[in-house]
Design a protein around this nucleic acid. Structure first.
Length: 262
DNA sequence: ATGACTTATTAAATAAGA
């Protein structure tokens, strides 16, 4: 089954590219971040017409996450368990079926940016990561196939950013940020892309400003983390880079993983 | 370079993103 993640930067502005991605890549499940609208304004009918079920955790103006799935969404969890910052819609989780009797637990995650680091935004980012790590540990104990997908706002390593020296003091690349992400991996999750390649320069985000896309000044900040049961099934990972060159693109592109039948 | 774009809210600016 194919599981994808994409920060759309407004679902209403991105409906046409979204429908095109659903048709072309045909993911079994797609995790969305930064939908930026309340649930009543979510374009549910258009997405259902494309053959997908929808679970939403929306918010006015900011944040907002959702999971689209060809199969029905079971055991839906709204909000990150154990995190006080429920005022911001940054986490939704559900179980999707792979159609062959197997099931995978999927989370759509929009971790805080955290900039500027000398403001309360940075400790908020670290607190979110800590709560996510605690929850991720609890999920491992279920011994399920789990995919924690989303915009982590973390550049894991120097090869994941066009110019590491320019990002040393940024909340996305500070040592404490990278350590927090590493603690999540240390639980036993695999960074799906890094399970398939060591190549540097594989980005999922290019800023709208200053010709970042044209100059390939990108970041790898959208990640798929796989529990051992999911990692054992990993067949392929791809970044839908061509999306960034389309009409009215998001500043992020989708990343997806193919898991073999359980 | 406290910039550059894009979005939402709201009605010409402001805030947030990364």
């Amino acid at each position: 089954m194919r599981i994808a993640s994409w920060n759309v930067n407004s679902i209403r502005q991105r409906l046409q590219p979204l429908l095109a991605f659903l048709k072309e890549a045909a993911p079994d499940a797609l995790c969305l971040q930064e939908t930026k609208c309340e649930d009543h304004a979510f374009p549910r009918l258009e997405i259902e017409d494309a053959g997908y079920n929808v679970a939403i955790h929306g918010q006015k103006t900011f944040n907002g996450v959702a999971i689209l799935s060809k199969s029905p969404l079971d055991d839906v969890t709204i909000g990150l368990p154990g995190f006080d910052g429920e005022a911001q819609s940054r986490y939704i989780e559900a179980v999707v079926s792979d159609g062959a009797g197997g099931a995978t637990r999927v989370a759509s995650i929009y971790a805080p940016n955290g900039n500027p680091p000398d403001t309360p935004k940075y400790p908020y980012k670290l607190a979110f990561m800590e709560a996510l790590t605690r929850h991720a540990a609890a999920l491992l104990r279920l011994e399920e196939s789990v995919v924690l997908a989303g915009d982590y706002n973390v550049i894991p390593a120097p090869g994941d950013v066009y110019e590491p020296s320019a990002w040393m003091g940024d909340a996305l690349f500070l040592p404490q940020t990278r350590a927090a992400f590493q603690r999540l991996l240390n639980l036993g999750y695999a960074d799906a892309l890094r399970a398939t390649t060591d190549a540097p320069g594989l980005y999922t985000f290019w800023d709208y400003q200053a010709g970042a896309w044209q100059k390939n000044k990108g970041l790898r900040i959208d990640h798929l983390l796989l529990s051992p049961r999911a990692a054992d099934r990993l067949a392929r990972v791809d970044i839908a880079k061509a999306m960034r060159a389309g009409d009215k693109p998001s500043d992020h592109v989708a990343i997806y993983a193919d898991l073999a039948a359980a």
